[in-house]
């Protein structure tokens, strides 16, 4: 799945993930409105159909209504994106990534220790 999700499409995916992986069209529109996004009906439909085409979503017919089902979980997607980001920017070198995170204070030393502890526990 080398396909990329555009920013606008990601907004829709997030709504669906937050709704537990499935969402009706009406729900999506409601959620968009709540966030103050003024997206037109057809705009949303176009974006949804693109996601379906890229196989990030599946359509289930419930009567005359469409229900959109995410085929990847948010975790899967994040992992996928992290991998491609790592490959693209750091050439697959995790050490460089972590050192950047530390140097830029995105990751504090305490948090790193926490992660280390978590990692050890997992491996025991």
């Amino acid at each position: 799945m080398a396909q990329q999700i555009s920013e606008a499409e990601l907004v829709l995916m997030k709504i669906i993930w937050q709704n537990g992986g499935t969402a009706l069209y009406a729900h999506i529109m409601e959620a968009l409105e709540k966030d103050g996004n003024e997206w037109k009906n057809n705009t949303v439909l176009t974006l949804l159909s693109r996601l379906v085409e890229k196989k990030f979503l599946k359509v289930k017919k419930i009567g005359r209504r469409n229900e959109y089902v995410a085929t990847v979980t948010q975790g899967d997607y994040q992992a996928l994106q992290t991998h491609s980001f790592l490959d693209k920017v750091y050439g697959g070198n995790v050490k460089n990534l972590v050192s950047t995170l530390l140097r830029q204070d995105i990751l504090s030393a305490d948090e790193l220790k926490e992660i280390e502890a978590f990692w050890r526990k997992e491996n025991e």
Binding site: E7, A8, N42, R50
Partner: peptide, 27 residues
């Protein structure tokens, strides 16, 4: 390349509504 600019898609959507086109037209 698909246009993902929401503003342009909204414009397209407006036009589709004015012409009463139901199908999704890609941009």
């Amino acid at each position: 390349t698909e246009v993902s600019d929401i503003h342009m898609l909204n414009l397209l959507s407006d036009c589709e509504e004015r012409l009463r086109i139901r199908t999704n037209v890609e941009l």
